[in-house]
Design a protein around this nucleic acid. Structure first.
Lengths: 198, 198
DNA sequence: CCTACCGATCGGTAGG
DNA sequence: CCTACCGATCGGTAGG
């Protein structure tokens, strides 16, 4: 039996990223110092640079690790034979699961992306816009099939994203609702709010 | 005829606050430097301190100027003879109007309040919690009267706040929707989503 | 992974 | 409202 080598450096890097996610969420990127980060990790600031390239590089990693989660949702959503309503519900639930399962990274993603620079900022916006289209397409489809009433789909889409993307502001892992309850209640609210009354 | 004196210092203070609101929104509080702020105003950094006490003091002023707007809404909402549905719609519309009419300050209020300290942080949270109760009360009332279906009112309340408080992230004054359209569409979405079906 | 250190920039003050 | 300046802290590097 082959025992896995303890990848010490890799573990330390993971630890740095985990601590950084949390500090970026709590204090914001700009207000988090490398000395403060190092202190939480339990090493000197200079030692961080054996594991990471720069403060900005950590931000990029955190932002794009969650961006990839969102892209995976999109790719997996190509199932056939579902109504727009069903697709809508599934998309909402998956999106909320990503946020809640990665609550610190999600907070950084939604709140600190403006500190990205140049290429990474550009790429971030591109991915975000593309991802939003995925939801807008479902809204259009639902109107075309007559499942949804006439709505300002862009505005409803922004409202939906607001509802989901703000969750990190109030969600507490120790709270009384589980992920499914939250996802269901929000999905039902929106579906009831936009479905065509027969 | 008495001509008003040009209150030079007061105007300069207002200008500083206006520029600060915008920079705090765009870059965040921590990433906004007093030298950068002064440069935008057109004076030297040291000169700022003839008009303001500290960087932190500006943040407090911006946060609490908008908090007062929200409290005014609450006080004016004591009209009698309205159904919960009507109260709900009015409360949503007024809240959204405050945000859109004070979009920079609103962004700071919702995004930078964590940089408040001690008393002002405590007071901020107290006001915010109290204000949220105002909405929760309407939701409870609507369920009691049978206007609204059975909902998790705390969760729906958080979702509503998310929808409204995220507006600053996407609202553009030059955009194609006016304040009333935005407020109406969001209010209708929520009311349709929670009303009891007869 | 540390000590020692770099130049740059920070919020803010003294004094005029 | 400015010049000149303060001590503190910033992100990051050199060298071991």
């Amino acid at each position: 039996m082959v025992e896995e080598k303890p990848k010490r450096s890799s573990n330390r890097k993971m630890q740095i990223r985990t601590v950084a996610r949390n500090m970026f969420k709590e204090k914001g990127y700009a207000a988090t110092s490398m000395r403060g980060l190092a202190s939480e990790v339990g090493i000197e600031a200079a030692s961080l640079y054996n594991h990471i390239k720069s403060k900005h590089d950590i931000l990029q990693e955190v932002c794009f690790e969650i961006a990839e989660h969102f892209l995976l949702i999109q790719e997996s959503a190509e199932e056939e034979g579902l109504s727009a309503t069903e697709k809508f519900k599934i998309a909402i639930e998956k999106h909320i699961i990503v946020i809640i399962d990665n609550i610190d990274a999600a907070a950084v993603f939604f709140n600190e992306w403006r500190h990205l620079e140049n290429d990474s900022l550009h790429e971030f916006k591109r991915m975000r816009d593309q991802y939003e289209k995925h939801f807008l397409k479902i809204l259009s489809e639902g109107q075309a099939t007559g499942e949804f009433r006439n709505i300002n789909e862009k505005l409803i889409g922004l409202t939906l994203f607001s509802s989901m993307n703000w969750i990190y502001q109030w969600y507490q892992p120790t709270g009384k609702w589980n992920t499914k309850q939250i996802a269901d209640e929000i999905a039902d609210l929106f579906i009831t709010g936009i479905k065509k009354i027969k």
